[in-house]
């Protein structure tokens, strides 16, 4: 029999066991035969690789990989919006650590407590996936902290700044967001927390699910929020007010939108500073008398400043420091 034909039969799995054993032994003995078999086998494998698997099977497999992506890793920082003036790399601090043990390994976790910080620098909006699959969007100038026991025996987060959270439901382990003044306790919901240290109030807006608001000090329950409600906590007077709102308008920042609705200029300045990583200098207090209403999505800082000049009684000039590569915007009332 033709020796090539034998090999092809072996490759195409058309040989019975005894014949197969004999031929393989032959191949192993004769280098030339092995070389030929190698070539045929590889070619055959390449031909086979041209086959198309069903989309459904590929999709299923992709989903499995996707799960492992979010599970295996240290939290991943995804830059959602590369802003015009943004530094391109988001900072991950203290991440060297992070070996998360899951469910079944939970007895062997590291006893020492390590705190991880994730920072979205000024000028950037970032997205983090936490070990429990909770997804957190961080607005510019926001710090998120949690320890290495997160998702094991606690789900405690500390947030300085603004974050939108899509919390993975876990009845046994409520997720608690601490802002220093009030805590937000949830089982599985979508909500927005705005608690920049330089601001006078803390806002919590609930999109879906249920949240409990607690006083950080003694963990006493202050109130509950329903979807579509916003809690505003006045830090100076320790007062909590709840009102009905359009949740979307408080969450559109994660798509890169800047939304001002009758916003006092002091607030506008802080938000622009964070968003574009610039500094403002206010030359006279008259500037603060203006309020701004406007919706910006793709506009750069310059366009927004033009809009402010047009709609408020404010003139501006931009000073560039070529050494430090920073911009300062000087505001003056007209």
């Amino acid at each position: 029999m033709n020796k090539l034909e034998d090999l092809i039969d072996l490759i195409t799995t058309n040989l019975d066991s005894p014949e197969k054993e004999k031929l393989i032994a032959e191949i192993e003995r004769e280098p030339d035969k092995k070389k030929l078999y190698s070539r045929l086998k590889t070619t055959w494998a390449l031909i086979a690789s041209e086959r198309q698997m069903s989309d459904a099977k590929v999709e299923t497999s992709y989903k499995q990989v996707r799960v492992q992506l979010s599970r295996n890793r240290a939290p991943r920082l995804i830059s959602l919006v590369r802003l015009k003036y943004a530094a391109s790399i988001a900072l991950l601090i203290g991440l060297s650590v992070v070996m998360f043990y899951w469910g079944r390994y939970s007895k062997s976790w590291d006893e020492t407590l390590v705190v991880n910080s994730v920072i979205a620098p000024k000028g950037e909006i970032s997205k983090v996936i936490l070990p429990d699959s909770t997804v957190v969007w961080l607005n510019s100038g926001t710090t998120l902290k949690y320890d290495n026991h997160f998702a094991l025996d606690n789900r405690r987060l500390t947030i300085y700044g603004q974050a939108y959270l899509a919390v993975k439901r876990n009845e046994d382990l409520p997720l608690v967001v601490s802002t220093g003044q009030i805590d937000v306790k949830v089982l599985g919901t979508k909500f927005d927390v705005c608690a920049y240290p330089e601001e006078d109030d803390i806002q919590v807006v609930l999109e879906s699910g249920k949240v409990e608001l607690l006083r950080s000090e003694d963990r006493s329950v202050l109130d509950m929020l329903k979807p579509g409600q916003m809690a505003k906590y006045d830090i100076l007077n320790h007062r909590l007010a709840i009102e009905d709102v359009q949740p979307n308008t408080y969450m559109s920042w994660k798509e890169g939108e800047l939304l001002f609705k009758d916003a006092p200029m002091s607030n506008v300045i802080k938000r622009l500073e964070r968003r574009f990583d610039v500094a403002f200098v206010v030359k006279d207090p008259g500037v603060y008398r203006s309020v701004l209403t406007g919706n910006f999505r793709t506009e750069g800082l310059k366009e927004i400043m033009e809009y402010i000049r047009f709609s408020c009684q404010i003139n501006y000039s931009i000073q560039k420091d070529s050494v430090s590569n920073t911009s300062t915007i000087i505001l003056q009332s007209k």
Partner: peptide, 26 residues
């Protein structure tokens, strides 16, 4: 390199079945 998951998915879909059947032969 920009962490775009969509790109990852495109690559996955393009090569998954090829790699699978190639290795499966061996």
């Amino acid at each position: 390199k920009n962490d775009d998951e969509n790109t990852f998915k495109i690559i996955f879909k393009r090569y998954y079945s090829r790699l699978y059947y190639f290795i499966f032969e061996f």
